[in-house]
Nucleic acid binder design. Sequence first.
DNA 1: CGCCGCGCATGACATCTGTCACCCGGCGGT
DNA 2: ACCGCCGGGTGACAGATGTCATGCGCGGCG
Lengths: 204, 204
Amino acid sequence: MTSTIKVLLAEDQSMVREALAALLGLEDDIEVVAQVARGDEVVAAVGAHGVDVALLDIEMPGCTGIEAAARVRRAHPDVKLVVLTTFGRPGYLRSAMEAGADAFLVKDAPAAQLAEAIRKVLAGERVIDPTLAAAALAEGANPLTEREREVLRAAADGSTNAELAQALHLSPGTVRNYLSTAIQKLAARNRAEAVLIAREKGWL
Amino acid sequence: MTSTIKVLLAEDQSMVREALAALLGLEDDIEVVAQVARGDEVVAAVGAHGVDVALLDIEMPGCTGIEAAARVRRAHPDVKLVVLTTFGRPGYLRSAMEAGADAFLVKDAPAAQLAEAIRKVLAGERVIDPTLAAAALAEGANPLTEREREVLRAAADGSTNAELAQALHLSPGTVRNYLSTAIQKLAARNRAEAVLIAREKGWL
DNA sequence: CGCCGCGCATGACATCTGTCACCCGGCGGT
DNA sequence: ACCGCCGGGTGACAGATGTCATGCGCGGCG
């Protein structure tokens, strides 16, 4: 490797983003060439700066880091993708890998792993926390259908059946049916618990 | 100022914590002398390292940064307290100030404000985002009674009335009464929405 | 002292929610 | 051709939830 590794940082909280930039700035083979605060600005920035590795937070306005990863994979297939997240939800790991991520890191892992992961993905390796990988495999795939997920997502803010029906252009009875099957699939006791479980597993 | 400012960093996500340490390490008048990942380790670490300023995240295991701030204030009245948080909830600001914090920063403020805030609190100033301060004053105090808050907190995980009654040693009817008044005070349409509203305002 | 707010409780009532049975049309597999 | 699953719907029913009136005892405040 003759030149430095060019990194893009995508993270919405500027204090965290700039702190991560400072951290990576300590490594002399790594250079942060671009920073963005929104998921939907990632692809353009990757194109504009000749980025080698994109470091993507999941929780971002615009679009999620996972969606951004999928877009970068399509537009710039050679760029390596590191997904970084606060929450070690197995479902997140699964969808990140499906979106084409090369590494998946949680923010409560030691900071040293960050630079290490960047070097490894550039060398063609994949970096995944083995504990999380096991959890993702153990829990199986998302059992919810697309519609069930939609209804559950819409129900997350405490809307009533009537409001959900209106918002989703469905009959109130259908809304209740979907919620009922979702509740059973998730082994929850009501919609509120179902939302919590789905969210925790990264199925929302 | 003849010597460097000694800072304690309390933040549970090690990647963020170490990144913030790297960021502060770039300032030559600031030295991070201690790092902890739990709220209940803060007081001891402050005592052990002769800390000038404690930087406290709110969301932490052990105890919250706000609770930790109150404990430091009691045990070491001269130590300056900077509370740092992901969520700019007015209720958080209010309780942080009541706990004796000297500065209140949100993580999506520019990183430069961090070092600046540390220097300002040491000079005796208070640092508060004016927008947030206005919001905190505008929304008024927490209208919920202690019991209402307890019930709402317990209801947050989707428990039924019967389970809440058992857990809180109350009659099921009483649980419903408390939830009902809480729902009305928060102008919510059901318990789920009430939980969301209370959480967003920092009243939980 | 009287009044009010809080904690706690009961009973009655209307509505919301969750479940179940059953219906249709379409699409993919065997 | 048949089965199963999905999207969408209806009707019925039990139980959970939200509201209201009312009651009691306690403590603070004018």
